[in-house]
Design a protein around this nucleic acid. Structure first.
Length: 885
RNA sequence: GGGCGGGUAGCUCAGCUGGAAGAGCGCCACGCUUACACCGUGGAUGUCACAGGUUCGAGCCCUGUCCCGCCUACCA
């Protein structure tokens, strides 16, 4: 039946390309909008359009593809929705850099031309990552690929904005926000990264206006004093009780500011008095609200002191700091400095120090949304896996603050708000208005700002399915079944999708969320370009093949634990691919004359029953593990079965049958089993190693008409389980191992064929061993084997013990007796330790009284085993002593 | 300051509801046996961080301590 000859080794580079095209050509990745089959859907965490595949993507998408392929094979109408997001800041930066090289700025082009330029860039260079995902083997439904700036998604963004606005969930106002002086935009709280800075605490004296002394304040940012509008103390602080309401003179600025009382102030920090700069600090801003303080912004959008900064106007914030310090010292206001470590917020994009600034921004009122998102998880409408992340989710949701969604960028969804030049009306609309509905003026000006990229990402689970249209796909696939993503964007993305999904769709966006850990290097350090320890996934794929790479990621993905990656580990699994390939060569090579249709009336014999039992267990283990997102367990189960059960034992034991040394019937049985087991094995492995399994599946069937990826995933069956066969086979395996052990330990050359005698405890065991004699003979390289019931131990033998079975290997002329004595002594010591432990347990009356009955009987059985083994070994040792005496 | 995760074989880690300590790599010995030296066979290796406690029984549960990560937070 077989014509295709397998090469010496699997050639990943060639096969991957060919097979991926084959899948695409056959449209296997495509999900139907409607189907009789149950739906299973995942939306991809959209990578940035500027992105390149890194290890994090590789892990994330491998896990998604594993589950997607698994579910697809289980018969679900499976959708993996792919796409990218427009990454406002990142993309704008890239194009601006391009312009800089041409000596231009985006302002030279103007908004419209700049955006056209970004689209041009996107068409030309964007989305490299999509092709990289294909190299990973991802079975996304590429026909449905979406982009957050698509027409459809853009419309959806407007719809949601307008709905939120109409329902009073969006507001605009002057508030203090995190401002990046380099990106020139506000960013959300989440986009600020805090870094510890070794700096100083400057202590400055502010004299009372009435000349009655002074008050000392401490600050980490002396330059902000230019905008101070108060000094605050704790109302309970005895030291300052009588000073509240008095005025101090703000040094350098020469103006009077009040002393106010507020609980926020910590009495035992510094002097207990703090300068208040509402224009440059979020806490101070809040306090200004409470006390009706003046709010002064002393900087412009680039971090340069403005007209409110007196003589420091025009200096940038760092320069101003140096000058303010110098002047304070010169004029005698500086009390002193002390070294101080504190956290400085930086822009997550460009690492520029964030400047808290007051500006007009758009916000989403988030508490009501968060409340429902919390409830959904509490009620398990969405399940977070591993569950421990729920606590983090709740904590963040409970302490959430309004979301600043406006960005002062050009690339993104422009806020759908227009201001009427005629009457000043604010128009919020899905479609561009032509005229003011109130005054009819056509002089309308759209808001300059765009929305946070995460605003559109938060809608991803339904906008990609066609919303606001009520599409069949939306009906079929929403809520999606599962989201797989890194824990690092739990807040950025997952939480926001939860809130928006519930708000817009009245239902959670996904039923399960699996959060995976980070990929680190082999030393456990985070991979980064600057550290130079990052591993390029594509290089790994080129070097070891996609299958080995994916399997490594899966095998190391234990829940809640980081994945440590190194080329050596991937190489290890490349060896596994090679092992499979060679197992296939042996398997397929011996199916050439197999006639499936031939009616051979031959039932499975022992090894067949055994391997089917083990396979059945493996099917169960893989299925259960994947159902629970235990990727490492699934990978380990299939690895162990293929290598240590199928290859190490079944194939070895089958060789004589295959070579026709047993009988034609047995050969047929073996071929049949090999073929069936091998096929199922490939199916189990396919989600992890899509390419090599497809290649071998087609070779096995000698046809590319049936792809493994749409074959039905194996299911367990009770018929396959044969406990008795399993036990009997395991006994034979133990006997074989025991003989091999004697051979190895006693340095008996492998080529030397041995004569072995076995003592069985009863007739039935004797028969079992004799029935399996051929396997023993073959796998432990014996010349002869004879089995007797209660055979008296011969003189001068090496002894192995398996339960009640004693194995004798005559040593005469082979090795010295002393070596055997040492070996037996070692064994004896081991068993006596077990025996002691076991008997102590059983002697304990509390144990007998309180332990479960099955535990006791199990312990008793163990003890019996140990006793038998002990006395057998002891007897053997005695025999040897007699000889040597 | 809070929160989470971790400390198990030389290394990297499994160990699900407490009932004989596991894997991979590395190491040692032997072997080119007609799928595979990217291999085979055999072997060695652990006070499961520490101290208490619960239990007949603890790597697993409880309390405390010490390290190591990460997340989060407005003490100027």
């Amino acid at each position: 039946m077989l014509t295709k000859e397998l090469g010496k080794a699997f050639e990943p580079a060639e096969a991957e390309k060919r097979l991926y095209e084959y899948w695409l050509k056959n449209n296997y990745f495509h999900a139907r909008d409607t189907s009789e089959n149950p739906a299973f859907s995942i939306v991809i965490p959209p990578p940035n359009v500027t992105g390149m595949l890194h290890m994090g993507h590789a892990l994330n998408n491998t896990l998604q593809d594993v589950i997607i392929r698994f579910k697809r094979m289980q018969g679900y109408n499976t959708l993996w929705m792919p796409g990218m997001d427009h990454a406002g800041i990142a993309t704008q930066n890239v194009v601006e850099q391009q312009l800089t090289k041409e000596g231009l700025s985006r302002h030279d082009l103007g908004r419209e031309k700049f955006i056209a330029r970004v689209w041009e860039w996107k068409e030309k260079y964007g989305g490299v990552i999509i092709n990289q995902l294909k190299r990973l083997g991802c079975s996304c439904d590429w026909q449905r690929e979406r982009f957050t700036m698509d027409e459809g998604l853009s419309k959806a963004v407007r719809e949601v904005f307008v709905r939120l606005y109409d329902e009073g969930m969006i507001y605009q106002g002057d508030y203090i926000v995190n401002w990046c002086p380099r990106c020139h935009t506000a960013i959300s709280d989440l986009e600020v990264e805090f870094k510890q800075d070794q700096s100083f605490l400057w202590n400055i004296r502010y004299p009372f206006a009435d000349g009655s002394g002074e008050i000392v304040v401490a600050t980490t940012r002396p330059e902000t004093m230019l905008g101070d509008t108060a000094v605050a103390v704790n109302p309970a602080d005895e030291r300052y009780k009588d000073k509240i309401g008095k005025f101090v003179i703000l040094p350098l600025m020469n103006k009077q500011i009040p002393i106010i009382a507020d609980d926020y102030v910590t009495m035992d920090f510094g002097s207990g008095a703090v300068k208040i700069t509402p224009g440059s600090d979020p806490n101070d801003f809040a306090m200004a609200g409470r006390h009706n303080l003046e709010i002064i912004s002393i900087m412009d959008g680039q971090g340069i002191i403005n007209e409110h900064g007196g003589k420091y106007r025009g200096q940038d914030r760092y320069e101003a700091r140096r000058n303010v310090i110098a002047d304070l010292e010169k004029e005698g206001f500086m009390v002193g400095t002390e070294p101080y470590a504190h956290n400085v917020g930086q822009c997550y994009r460009c690492k520029t120090d964030i400047e808290p600034m007051v500006s007009k921004q758009w916000f989403v009122k988030i508490k009501p949304l968060a409340k429902q998102a919390i409830a959904a998880v509490t009620k398990k409408k969405t399940k977070i896996v591993p569950e421990s992340w729920e606590a983090t989710y709740f904590d963040w949701m409970n302490n959430i603050r309004d979301w600043c969604i406006s960005r002062q960028l050009w690339w993104g969804h422009r806020i759908p708000v227009w201001y009427c030049g005629g009457c000043g009306k604010v128009i919020v609309s899905v479609t561009d208005p032509d005229a003011c509905p109130d005054c009819g003026s056509a002089s309308l000006k759209q808001d300059e700002d765009v929305l946070d990229t995460w605003f559109s990402s938060s809608l991803w689970p339904f906008t990609t399915l066609g919303w606001p249209e009520r599409t069949p796909a939306l009906k079929t696939f929403y809520p999606t079944s599962l989201l797989i993503t890194g824990f690092d964007i739990l807040f950025f993305w997952v939480a926001r999708m939860m809130m928006m999904g519930i708000y817009v769709m009245k239902d959670v966006p996904f039923k399960d969320v699996y959060l995976h850990a980070l990929v680190r290097d082999e030393k456990g350090e985070k991979m980064s370009k600057s550290k130079g320890n990052s591993i390029d996934p594509l290089v790994m794929i080129d070097q070891y093949g996609t299958d080995a790479f994916r399997f490594t990621l899966s095998a190391y993905t234990a829940q809640g634990r980081d994945v440590r990656m190194s080329p050596e580990r991937i190489e290890g699994y490349k060896f596994f691919v090679n092992k499979i390939w060679n197992a296939a060569k042996l398997t397929l090579g011996n199916l050439a004359d197999y006639d499936e249709s031939a009616h051979v009336d031959a039932p499975d014999s022992l090894p067949e029953k055994w391997i089917r039992t083990k396979l059945n267990e493996t099917v169960a283990a893989v299925t259960r593990s994947l159902d629970e997102y235990r990727f490492n367990d699934a990978a380990a189960a299939i690895y162990n079965f293929i290598w240590h059960e199928y290859c190490d034992w079944y194939l070895e034991i089958s060789k004589p049958a295959l070579y026709g040394k047993i009988s034609a019937g047995q050969k047929h049985v073996t071929q049949r089993t090999m073929k069936e087991v091998f096929a199922i094995m490939l199916q189990l492995l396919h989600p992890f190693m899509p390419f090599v399994t497809e290649e071998l599946w087609q070779a096995l069937h000698n046809s590319d008409e049936h792809s493994i990826m749409i074959s039905r995933f194996p299911e367990t069956s009770d018929v396959q389980e044969d406990g008795a066969a399993r036990q009997e086979m395991e006994m034979l395996m133990e006997i074989i191992t025991s003989i091999r052990n004697i051979r190895g330990e006693m340095r008996i050359p492998p080529s030397l064929k041995l004569k072995v005698f076995i003592s069985a405890p009863d007739e039935q065991t004797k028969k079992s061993i004799e029935d399996g004699g051929g396997y023993i003979l073959n796998l432990s390289n014996l010349e002869s084997l004879s089995v007797e019931v209660n055979l008296v131990e011969p003189r001068g033998v090496a002894t192995g013990v398996v339960g009640s079975i004693k194995i004798f290997v005559p040593l005469a002329g082979i090795v010295d007796i002393a070596a055997e004595k040492t070996r037996l002594g070692k064994e004896l010591a081991k068993v006596s330790k077990d025996l002691e432990q076991s008997s102590r347990k059983l002697a304990n009356s509390d144990f007998r009284a309180k332990a479960a009955p099955e535990v006791i009987s199990k312990e008793e059985a163990k003890m019996k085993e140990f006793q038998k083994k002990y006395s057998a070994l002891e007897g053997a040792l005695k025999k040897l002593q007699e000889i040597s005496m």
